[in-house]
Simulated assay, not measured.
Amino acid sequence: MEVEKVLMEWQKENYHDAYTMMKEALDNAKEERDILKQKYCAAYFDISVNTLTDWVAHGCPEIRLDSGMVLYSKKAVRDWLLAYQK
């Protein structure tokens, strides 16, 4: 009975470790992606979607697909922001 308890605890720990590693890998893969949808771009720069829309009105680059979907390049937005650095 004690062996079963230890084995169950070991399985829980291994499951938790595997889950944590997979979640971190997925988060890293998302972080490496350059082209993002509007809400994810806003979240990446820690701003609201309204602020991102305001930035676009002031010249921040965006990608508008024929379908109407709006995408953003993190690199292009970062470069645009750095152009205003003093």
Results as ranks from 00 to 15, higher is better:
Met1Thr: 06
Glu2Thr: 08
Glu2Ser: 09
Val3Thr: 13
Val3Ile: 11
Glu4Val: 04
Glu4Gly: 14
Glu4Ala: 13
Lys5Ile: 11
Lys5Met: 07
Val6Tyr: 08
Val6Trp: 08
Met8Ile: 07
Met8His: 10
Met8Gln: 14
Met8Leu: 11
Glu9Pro: 06
Trp10Leu: 13
Trp10Ser: 14
Trp10Gly: 05
Lys12Met: 08
Lys12Trp: 00
Lys12Glu: 10
Glu13Gln: 14
Glu13Pro: 02
Asn14Glu: 11
Asn14Gln: 12
His16Asp: 13
His16Leu: 11
Asp17Gly: 03
Ala18Ser: 13
Ala18Leu: 14
Ala18Glu: 15
Ala18Gln: 14
Thr20Asn: 11
Thr20Ser: 11
Met22Ile: 04
Lys23Trp: 01
Glu24Asn: 14
Ala25Ile: 08
Ala25Glu: 13
Leu26Glu: 13
Leu26Ile: 12
Leu26Ala: 12
Leu26Tyr: 09
Leu26Gln: 14
Asp27Pro: 03
Asp27Leu: 09
Asp27Ile: 07
Asp27Gln: 13
Asn28Ser: 12
Ala29His: 09
Ala29Gln: 10
Ala29Cys: 07
Glu31Cys: 06
Glu31Gln: 12
Glu32Arg: 13
Arg33His: 03
Asp34Ile: 01
Asp34Val: 01
Ile35Gly: 01
Leu36Ala: 02
Lys37Leu: 05
Gln38Pro: 01
Lys39Arg: 10
Lys39Gln: 06
Lys39Asn: 12
Tyr40Trp: 09
Tyr40Asn: 15
Cys41Trp: 01
Cys41Arg: 02
Ala42Ser: 01
Ala43Leu: 02
Ala43Cys: 00
Ala43Asp: 10
Tyr44Ser: 00
Phe45Asn: 01
Phe45Thr: 03
Phe45Leu: 03
Phe45Ser: 00
Asp46His: 10
Asp46Met: 04
Asp46Thr: 09
Ile47Asn: 03
Ser48Gly: 15
Val49Arg: 09
Asn50Cys: 04
Thr51Asp: 00
Thr51Met: 09
Asp54His: 15
Trp55Met: 00
Val56Ser: 08
Val56Lys: 06
Ala57Ser: 15
His58Asn: 15
Cys60Glu: 05
Cys60His: 07
Cys60Asn: 04
Pro61Leu: 03
Glu62Pro: 02
Glu62Val: 10
Glu62Cys: 15
Glu62Thr: 12
Ile63Arg: 11
Ile63Thr: 06
Ile63Phe: 01
Arg64Val: 10
Leu65Arg: 11
Leu65Pro: 06
Asp66Ala: 07
Asp66Lys: 07
Ser67Asp: 02
Ser67Val: 01
Val70Arg: 15
Leu71Thr: 00
Ser73Tyr: 01
Ser73Ala: 03
Ser73Asn: 06
Lys74Thr: 07
Lys74Ala: 04
Lys75Leu: 08
Ala76Gln: 14
Ala76Ile: 02
Arg78Leu: 11
Asp79Gln: 15
Trp80Asn: 05
Trp80Ile: 07
Leu82Ala: 13
Ala83Tyr: 10
Tyr84Thr: 07
Gln85Val: 08
Gln85Phe: 08
Lys86Asn: 10
Lys86His: 09
